[in-house]
């Protein structure tokens, strides 16, 4: 069950140009958060911007939760200015996260800021003793590490990298790394930009591998009340219908998603 918290900000540091790592302390929230879930954060006490900002839980350690975010506009700019020692108005944890009750090897595929939610997933799978392979993509070595790559590696999990500039691992796309691993008995967990997710979903389908994808949408309420954050889905060959990214998602079975 989600709640409102005034979480204590432990630290907020720039870990790469425009990328921030914020650690907050809130025991109950840390206990409740599941992989793939997100927090809806009020970034302004006033009305500019008015709406909360959805940010994934990246990491949980004891009573502390970590988020990683990229400054892309006014809201994340304000979040970047939050000082340690202050309080953050956090609603959460929200959404339907990754299902970890799966079997076989877990392949985690993350692109850019999409690496962030894979952290808590990797922690959970690691604790379960699951064989896990991480594929991490991004623009540069620095950004891939800052967006969550270093957390994955820190767990001692094998991580293969792909960067746009070749500064770390393959000079190319994370989906090329995935293709190299297929086919195999596995389950794919993916988060990243739409084009990447669409390609991952396609590869998973071609190789008959179950795949869970975490999607993003602009949100009004974050709790399922406004119907503003819809994703078009369909049962195989079935009728198309909308589901709420904030409630039925953000994690969906890739086979259900009708890609735009």
């Amino acid at each position: 069950m989600s709640k409102l918290f005034a979480a204590e900000v432990v630290s907020n540091t720039q870990v790469a140009p425009g990328v921030f790592k914020l650690v907050m302390c809130e025991a109950e929230l840390a206990r409740l958060a599941r992989p793939g879930q997100f927090l809806n954060i009020r970034v302004s006490a006033g009305t500019a911007p008015l709406l909360r900002r959805p940010i994934s839980v990246h990491w949980v350690e004891g009573d502390n939760l970590t988020i990683i975010f990229q400054v892309v506009g006014q809201g994340t700019q304000l979040l970047a200015q939050v000082q340690s020692g202050g309080r953050l108005d956090v609603q959460g944890p929200l959404g339907h996260g990754f299902n970890t009750q799966t079997s076989g090897q877990a392949i985690l595929v993350g692109g850019g800021m999409g690496l962030a939610p894979l952290g808590l997933l990797a922690q959970t799978l690691h604790r379960q003793g699951r064989t896990t392979l991480c594929l991490a993509g991004g623009r540069t070595a620095e950004l891939v590490q800052a967006s969550g790559g270093s957390s994955l590696a820190g767990l001692g999990l094998p991580v293969h990298y792909a960067t746009d500039d070749g500064s770390l691992g393959l000079n190319g796309l994370v989906t090329e790394l995935l293709l190299r691993e297929l086919p195999r008995e596995a389950v794919i967990y993916a988060c990243g930009p739409q084009p990447m997710l669409r390609e991952v979903a396609k590869l998973a389908q071609e190789h008959g591998i179950p795949c869970q994808v975490s999607l993003e949408e602009h949100m009004g309420c974050g709790v399922g009340a406004c119907l503003g954050c819809m994703c078009k889905t369909a049962m195989p060959q079935g009728k198309e219908y909308y589901q709420r990214v904030c409630t039925e998602g953000p994690v969906f079975d890739a086979a259900e998603v009708v890609w735009q």
Partner: peptide, 14 residues
């Protein structure tokens, strides 16, 4: 319902 996007944030409103 309508196609997406269905929301847009505006100054002190939506």
């Amino acid at each position: 319902g309508n196609p997406m996007p269905r929301l847009a944030e505006t100054p002190s409103g939506m």
